[in-house]
Write a protein that binds this DNA or RNA. Sequence first.
DNA 1: GTGTGATCCACCCATATGGGTAATGGCGCA
DNA 2: TGCGCCATTACCCATATGGGTGGATCACAC
Lengths: 211, 211
Amino acid sequence: MHALPKVITAAVVEDDRGSREALVAALSAVDGFHCSGAFASGEEAVVQLPELLPDVVLMDIQLPGWNGIETIQRLKEKMPGSDFIMLTVLDDEESVFRSLCAGASGYLLKHASVMEILEAIRVVHEGGAAITPDIARLVVRSFQPQSTPGLSHRESEVLGRLCEGENYRSIAEALFISTNTVKAHIKGIYGKLHVNTRAGAVKRALRDRLV
Amino acid sequence: MHALPKVITAAVVEDDRGSREALVAALSAVDGFHCSGAFASGEEAVVQLPELLPDVVLMDIQLPGWNGIETIQRLKEKMPGSDFIMLTVLDDEESVFRSLCAGASGYLLKHASVMEILEAIRVVHEGGAAITPDIARLVVRSFQPQSTPGLSHRESEVLGRLCEGENYRSIAEALFISTNTVKAHIKGIYGKLHVNTRAGAVKRALRDRLV
DNA sequence: GTGTGATCCACCCATATGGGTAATGGCGCA
DNA sequence: TGCGCCATTACCCATATGGGTGGATCACAC
């Protein structure tokens, strides 16, 4: 099949006038793209964008009032079919993860070229995620196990079962030991994880991928 | 600074002889790359690769004996400084996430061109992650909240606190309600989440990002 | 105007959990 | 050989938790 000359509509939310107008100009000039709107604040975007329903929204993070992440959260509810790409100077883990959790499908740094931005728009519109390799590494690393705080083999085993919601007796039976021993191991785990409840242990285990 | 003509050493673990030799040939032929070894099974790789210590390892998933994911887990321990790229025909979520959790920094499908593979090797060696936009979308989507099974606002609030390891009393005080009411909400949560312990609820909440 | 769901509260009861303390044997390392 | 860590078990006790049942108000929809 030969590529349909389908135009991708995109909108811009960016408080810096220069950047905003440059993006609008690029979207207007390049074949295959159309700029359906540009806004200087999240508040304006939230009231107007759901009407325009662009395919893709380019979003700055640092905005006056609602920041880009809050804005995306609100927009996602009203326009779940649209895709969002963060376009920001911030490259810290916090900003990246918060953006992705809020619903962004792409994350570009502002030194990206116009061509890269347009390519990113095309990518997310085709169902991909537009993240640069270094951002991707952050994301991928978050899947990998963190340094376990010296849990013994047995303790890891017990922790795994705690995470499954098993109780003393169930764990004891599975490991062929007494419930008292299970308690002893759990005490060890709590000490090493600096928690004192199952919920706390499960949270640490899942969040830090100790399991 | 002008690019150092530093050679990146790479190894291949792939049971199909044709594919393996093609990769070795590419790595040997192209400037800037050097092939330090090729193996047809995980078992062979695990004994020999830690000696060769290549910068990057290309790993098939479907191998006889240990699969590529198990193999990476073992290799990561012995050579934490090396990077791993999966090179596979499998594109299901399961394989992707298992690979990343095992320590892969890249994930390519086998229809990738030789140039793309070499580029991926360069990328991971420079500290990035080599994943295609469609794989990236899977990964990014995993950060985003799943459909909450009809938890009420109050129940979400309580669930959030359960995940923090708070107990009845602590939650009750924070929300200015009685512990009995907290119990009532927790019962509601357990029902909707199909669990019957805190640990189970916390697990569901964190794994499915309902919080 | 009746029903449904959210939110709030109370009481009973069996069991699970967390904390404290103590003891045994094995294993590796100094 | 002694010290430390691990795995194992035991016992006591206060509190937390989960399940069952029942009832109140309020809002919103049919």
